[in-house]
Simulated assay, not measured.
Amino acid sequence: MADKNKDGNVTGNDVADASRPGLDQRTTAADTITRLLDDCQIVLFDCDGVLVDSEPISLATLVDVLDHFGAPLTFKEVADKFTGRSSSAPIDHIRVETGRDIKTEFKPFFYEKLFARYDIELRKIGDIDAVLEALRSRKIAFCISSSSSVERLEKTMTVTGLGQWFDDRIYSADFVRNGKPAPDLFLHACADMGFAPKSTIVIEDSVAGVTAAVAAGMKCIGFVGGGHYDGQHSEAANRLYDAGADIVIDDMGILAAVIAA
């Protein structure tokens, strides 16, 4: 049962209450998305866990890499600490735990293992092509704004074929001083594309990303349909709502249908 705060607003962990449409409430979700789209001119997509189902691959690889560098964590701990964050976060963790600065060693070692798995395992999120086609048909601009490095994004675009949709409209945490949860990357992408934050929708799967979108003054659609949220969609949705998401969905087909309507 949800609680109410002193202002009478619904709070707590019930995503099916009046303020938090449940993931199975398709009509309510569609109505909310329709309202968000009314004054939307651009959509900013996170990449990992939103465009591609890469998080289970990268998190499992990171577990192995942290163990290699002497700073082990469980899969759940890695997911909780690093989902939506740039590579500086695990590098900092290793330095704190071991006293070693492995900044120059980390990426080559991590990427060698990760990219080998990408070639075999990486897949697009279901219906994401339909979402991008609907945005193009509706003449709503879109781009990628991701915590991933340029190198990792290039690999992702090549393996999945998604690069054809985005051309040079790909923004990496490499471009800014402060990564998510700071708003810098989203504000940089918006400014470079020539749009105002208030006309922007961000699509994010992580608390760090949603927090960054809210701090940037942008609307945010949370997405919990990636493989890293299997079996915990409602719990993940609550975390994104708590971070400030306007709506949370677990099916890109809903978004595609609303945009195309």
Rank of each mutant, 00 (worst) to 15 (best):
A2F: 11
A2W: 07
D3M: 06
D3L: 13
K4Q: 15
N5H: 04
K6N: 11
D7C: 07
N9Q: 06
T11L: 06
T11S: 03
T11F: 04
D14V: 07
S19N: 07
P21M: 08
L23H: 11
D24E: 13
Q25P: 09
Q25M: 13
R26P: 00
R26E: 14
R26F: 08
T28N: 08
T28W: 01
A30E: 13
A30N: 02
R35T: 14
D39S: 13
D39G: 01
V43W: 02
D48T: 08
G49N: 08
D53N: 14
S54E: 09
E55S: 09
P56K: 06
P56H: 09
I57F: 09
L59C: 13
V63N: 01
D64N: 11
D64M: 06
L66Q: 03
P72A: 00
L73V: 02
T74R: 01
F75M: 15
K76A: 13
E77S: 07
V78A: 11
F82D: 02
T83I: 06
T83R: 07
S87R: 08
R95F: 07
E97H: 14
G99S: 03
G99M: 03
K103M: 09
T104G: 06
E105I: 00
P108M: 01
F115S: 02
F115H: 15
K124S: 14
G126T: 14
G126D: 14
D129S: 15
D129P: 00
V131M: 09
L135Q: 01
I140R: 05
A141Y: 02
C143V: 11
C143Q: 01
I144C: 03
S145Y: 02
S147T: 13
S148C: 11
R152Q: 15
R152I: 08
E154T: 15
K155G: 07
K155L: 04
K155H: 15
M157P: 01
T158Y: 03
Q164S: 10
Q164T: 12
Q164K: 15
D167W: 00
R169H: 12
Y171L: 05
S172G: 06
F175Y: 15
R177L: 09
N178W: 01
N178Y: 10
A182K: 09
L185N: 12
F186C: 06
L187S: 11
M193G: 01
G194C: 04
A196V: 08
S199Q: 14
S199E: 15
T200Q: 00
I203G: 05
V210L: 05
T211G: 08
T211P: 03
T211I: 05
A212N: 10
A212H: 08
A213G: 15
A213H: 04
A215N: 10
G227N: 09
G227R: 04
G227P: 10
D230Q: 13
G231K: 07
G231M: 04
Q232D: 06
H233S: 14
S234M: 04
A236F: 05
L240G: 10
L240C: 08
Y241V: 04
Y241L: 02
A245K: 05
V248M: 05
V248F: 04
I249N: 10
I249P: 09
D251R: 14
D251A: 08
I254K: 08
L255Y: 06
A256D: 09
I259Q: 03
